[in-house]
Write a protein that binds this DNA or RNA. Structure first.
Length: 851
DNA sequence: CTCTCCCT
């Protein structure tokens, strides 16, 4: 028998556990730690014949390593060695080593925090940093501190920051072991640039595969981020490969049969290319791989506390993942690894993967802590503290579900939820559904949502309706043949769902057996109240969720035709999320189950279309407007405020200005502008708008529409800002008209664009008058207390402009002679005296016939 | 072309 690397460290591990009670073992894959360490420790005196718990991250691993250990003892599983995973338990009265998945361990320690029958807990593959192992270790450490000082803890992992683990375990001794593997030569092949653009990863990958094939022999494993990339690379290869090479896709959503094809040995002389996701990094081992090609990318779930939803993102792998991938080429012989990034970029990679505790939905995690009696994670020891925003979001959801109270303490309902061993949303749904006699359907829906979708559609036949899935499950239960065009089903997943549904129903004591798929939406609304969504006005296939987010279907379908839906799987786009799975819902169902959460408020607002103030009593469920009732008795004060807001928005022109009032306003502004009448109030539009509350508001009482606005007494409102004296001052110093020598009254223009509210006020008002009407007047007429001469626009008999002046005296004296000469030529029959100051002014348009 | 992996 070959030497197992971990065996030379067993003595150190025993000693560390005996004296410190805690230890950390770092050993690469292939060191044999998972199966050798637990068996080697079984007879240690400090164990006092108590059990060893071995925690595994995957069900498959738990089952197979229990089988391996039992085999080494020449026993069957269930004797000394047993295991317990979800839906499967093989543990007998003599079992000393229990191999359990991490989730099972959480249930065990919650049920019995002191773990009475256990002497040692081993965390295997701790470097994966699943949220369950982080939680398990934290609870275990507290149990040791408070209840069980003789309980021992061993953490085993591949490469990770073992020093940090040792620290939170009170400086536990660290034991490092070598692995057993063959050297792998690494080549960096970064994507090329073409026309300043990086060549897509699929093309780069296909090129690298061609190069690897020509330079080496043996089978190839290619790591890609997802199904899309796998399919695209496969189609690129189709064109270039000969018949001696076979391409196999490998990803989680393939059926077991399709996955098994990867392992079939090929006839001699043929080569295998496996295009895989990160599933081949740890979960699945393929023999005979000599070459690894690594795209350097992976797809992971990111939870967003803002939206409360998770979405998939494609990110660069960590150095530890890249090394793990490379190691796949050196399992049986020396190998080669091509990395599709540069050596420089390699330095920029993160050392380790981001632990789940920092990136996933924490709802279940927060409820486990509440069940443990902890409302803030800071009360326990963590390698990485969960982020506050995510944890708060989780607590908020738990409050909505009624699982914790305002203080963050678990409620009786929360205790039922945590015992169900499901996501809190789903457990809550089942409990609520059972009250309606639909517990079994809820168990089925929960089981379905826990699995991946078992339907694969042909081309564009996508259907996001959950009822279709429920009917297919029902058909399988009733042993009916599935005859649906355009879809393929994965029966293995359906059978797992049925098994899981039965298990949950049994665990929660659900008796009633009837199921009605039409109830799906009503049940799911309890699980996802924040994703109840309402169709948006005039926009096909778009919906608004109760949490105020936009969502849409890519095409019309049996769910999208409803006014209300429950959107289940969304792509996580925070602005406008694509819906992959949904259930129909209705206003009636919403009213039946959520009326206690409805909020009502009186809304008074301006209706642009009707030009009226409109008062309604609005009923909301979150962001959704459920009902609206008109109110006839509108609050006057609020109506005034809305009118004022509307006038400020649209402008003062909304008010019924008269010519007289506009003139008064302009003359007021003119006078104030001269600086000689400082006590006058500011009558500009800006000032009037700013002070509307004081001068206009009292006159708006009882006004509710634009039409009514036309009837208000604007003059009184405007004059209320002026004293009697000020009004008189304006009339006297900025008159509307001036009487000229001919005796006619001529208007003064104070503004450039007369008649408009926003007109520009002139420095001097304009007086337009025929030149002949001014005969005999020496001085320019003056206003504003004889301080400002008007701007005289002197006109010909026909009213054409002849001259502009503010100095009439100088005009008569200097310019008149030339003007007269010109005018006499054009209007020979008119009177053009030599001395205009002694002549009689005239306002006659037509000349006298007699000379 | 709708989506990585895993678990109570």
């Amino acid at each position: 028998m070959t030497l197992i690397p971990i065996q030379q460290h067993i003595a150190d591990i025993k000693k560390a556990l005996e004296t410190s009670g805690r230890a950390v073992v770092q050993a690469p894959p292939g060191a044999g730690k998972t199966t050798h360490v637990p068996l080697a420790l079984l007879d240690e005196p400090w164990l006092k014949n108590k059990k060893i718990l071995l925690l595994e991250p995957r069900r498959l691993a738990a089952r197979s390593c229990a089988a391996y250990m039992a085999d080494r003892l020449h026993e069957k599983v269930g004797q000394t060695i047993g295991y317990q995973i979800r839906l499967d338990r093989k543990i007998g009265p003599d079992t000393r080593i229990e191999v359990v998945t991490e989730g099972v361990f959480t249930r065990q320690i919650q049920a019995d925090p002191s773990l009475e029958e256990v002497g040692l807990v081993i965390f295997d593959e701790f470097h994966e940093r699943n949220i369950h192992s982080d939680l398990g270790l934290a609870l275990c450490l507290e149990s040791v501190e408070a209840l069980r000082d003789d309980l021992r803890i061993l953490v085993m992992s591949a490469t990770m920051d073992v020093a940090a683990v040792s620290t939170i375990m009170d400086a536990a001794p660290v034991i490092v072991s070598q692995g057993k593997s063959f050297p792998v030569k690494t080549t960096y092949l970064p994507p090329l640039n073409k026309q300043n653009r990086t060549v897509p990863i699929e093309t780069t990958c296909a090129l690298a595969i061609g190069r690897a094939m020509s330079k080496n022999s043996g089978d190839i494993l290619v790591f890609l981020p997802g199904v899309g990339e796998i399919k695209r690379v496969a189609s690129l290869l189709e064109d270039t490969l000969d018949s001696g090479t076979h391409v196999f896709p490998l990803y989680g959503n393939l059926s077991q049969e399709e996955q098994a094809m990867v392992f079939w040995p090929l006839t001699s002389g043929k080569r295998k290319i496996v295009l895989a996701t990160s599933i081949a990094e740890t979960s699945i081992t393929i023999e005979g791989i000599c070459i690894v090609i690594d795209s350097g990318l992976m797809r992971v779930q990111r939870f967003s506390p803002q939206t409360g939803m998770s979405r998939l993102v494609t990110i660069p792998v960590s150095k530890s993942s890249a090394d793990q991938r490379r190691g796949r080429a050196g399992r049986t012989a020396p190998g080669k690894c091509y990395r599709l990034w540069s050596e420089h970029d390699h330095q920029l990679l993160k050392s380790f993967i981001k632990p789940e505790i920092l990136s996933v939905d924490l709802t279940g995690f927060a409820l486990e802590l509440a069940a443990w009696g902890v409302s803030e994670p800071g009360q326990l020891k963590w390698l990485d503290q969960p982020e506050k925003a995510s944890f708060d979001q989780a607590k908020n959801l738990l409050k909505i579900l009624g699982a914790i109270d305002e203080k963050g303490q678990i409620t009786p309902h929360g205790k039922k939820i945590v015992a169900a061993g499901l996501h809190p949303r789903l457990a809550h749904m089942i409990i609520k559904a059972d009250e309606k006699g639909q517990g079994l359907l809820a168990c089925r829906i929960a089981a379905f949502l826990n699995e991946r979708d078992f339907i694969r559609f042909d081309q564009n036949a996508v259907d996001p309706d959950i009822r279709l899935r429920l009917e297919l499950i029902e058909a399988i239960i009733n042993k009916q043949k599935i005859l649906q065009q355009g879809i393929k089903t994965n029966k293995r997943i359906i059978h797992r769902i049925i098994k899981s549904e039965k298990n949950t129903a049994k665990k929660l004591g659900i008796k009633l057996k009837k199921t009605d798929p039409e109830m799906a939406g009503r049940l799911l609304a309890h699980a996802y109240p924040d994703r109840i969504a309402q169709k948006r006005n005039n926009r096909d296939n778009t919906f608004l969720t109760a949490s105020g987010k936009g969502t849409f279907f890519t095409q019309t379908n049996t769910v999208s035709i409803n006014e209300y839906i429950v959107a289940l799987h969304l792509d996580g786009n925070p602005r406008n999320a694509k819906i992959f799975l949904a259930a129909p819902y209705s206003k009636k169902e919403l009213e039946l189950d959520f009326s206690k959460d409805f909020k009502t408020g009186q809304i008074i607002k301006w209706n642009k279309k009707t030009g009226m103030i409109q008062a309604t009593k609005d009923t909301f469920f979150g962001a959704l407007l459920i009902g609206q009732q008109a109110i006839s008795d509108i609050d006057h004060e609020k109506a005034c405020d809305i009118l004022i807001r509307e006038i400020k928005k649209t402008g003062l022109a909304l008010l019924p200005w008269t010519k007289r009032l506009i003139s008064l306003k302009q003359r007021g502004i003119f006078l104030k502008h001269t600086g000689r009448f400082a006590d006058l109030p500011d009558m500009s539009d800006t000032a009037l708008e700013k002070q509307m509350e004081t001068w206009l508001k009292p006159f708006l009482t009882g006004i509710f529409s634009l039409k009514q606005l036309e009837k208000i007494d604007l003059e009184s409102a405007f004059l209320s800002r002026l004293t009697w004296k000020q009004q008189q001052a304006i009339e006297k110093n900025a008159p509307t008209h001036i009487t000229v020598p001919s005796g006619s009254k001529k208007p003064l223009t104070y503004c450039r664009e007369n008649g408009f509210l926003n007109a520009t006020i002139l420095d001097a008002p304009i007086l337009e008058v025929r030149l002949q009407e001014m005969f005999g007047l020496t001085e320019t007429p003056k206003i504003a207390g004889h301080a400002i001469p008007v701007a005289l626009h002197l006109l010909s008999p026909a009213g054409r402009p002849v001259q502009i002046t503010t100095d009439l005296k100088s005009f008569w004296k200097n310019t008149y002679k030339d003007v007269k000469k010109d005018l006499m030529g054009r209007y020979p029959k008119h009177f053009w005296p030599e001395d205009p100051l002694c002549a009689m002014p005239t306002n006659r348009v037509k000349p006298k016939t007699r000379v």
